[in-house]
């Protein structure tokens, strides 16, 4: 069985659960619970979102949505083996927690493990062009600090087309 893993990691509300749902052929196994504090949405994921794409009888891509906060780094350990791709989701509209992104990039070290990495900015459908570009530059500065050569793209996790465009890019980068 050729089974590969795509890790989707990002802060609360960045769209991990939605993206896994959009890409997965199975009803994703999620760990969403009702939030007890105001985080801007009713439910939040406290574990891993798991989805899957069957490519053939003996080939599949597992999609793992993992929380980006450092306190969940035990889950990072769980997914950080032989990754087909590492997707970092950044939510537009809020200043990202760069200290945390720094830790995340240090942990996954995509440049050392030669893991293909893409950063996708979400929630930017109604954002103004300049602010989106500015956020992209903040993120690019952090990537350069970690010597990570990765594209920063804008996506809509609800859209099949947008979600699949990520797979196209991962596949091209892995080729």
């Amino acid at each position: 069985m050729d089974y590969q893993k795509l890790a989707v990691i990002g802060e609360v509300g960045s769209g991990k659960t939605q993206l896994v749902q959009t890409l997965s052929e199975i009803n994703p196994f999620g760990t969403e619970v009702k939030s007890t504090i105001d985080i801007g949405k009713e439910y939040t994921t406290v574990g891993i979102d798991y989805g899957r794409i069957t490519l053939s009888d003996d080939m599949a891509l597992g999609i793992y949505g993992v929380p980006g906060q450092e306190r969940y780094s035990f889950l990072w350990e769980f997914v950080n083996r032989s990754l087909w791709g590492l997707l970092i989701l950044i939510k537009y509209g809020e200043t990202p927690d760069y200290e945390n992104l720094d830790k995340m990039l240090t942990f996954f070290s995509p440049e050392k493990t030669q893991t293909t990495c893409i950063v996708a900015v979400t929630h930017c459908e109604d954002g103004d062009e300049l602010s989106i570009a500015a956020l992209g530059q903040e993120v690019r500065a952090m990537l350069m600090h970690h010597n990570v050569v990765a594209p920063v793209v804008n996506i809509d996790p609800r859209s099949q087309e947008s979600a699949k465009s990520l797979l196209v890019l991962f596949n091209a980068l892995n080729h």
């Binding site: 720094d102 103004d128 602010s131 952090m142």
Partner: peptide, 20 residues
């Protein structure tokens, strides 16, 4: 500088919003 000493244009998007 961030707490971990990384020099980043943090808040650039905020500055841009204000500059609009």
């Amino acid at each position: 500088l961030t707490k971990s000493g990384v020099c980043l244009p943090i808040g650039l998007s905020g500055i841009v919003k204000a500059s609009n």
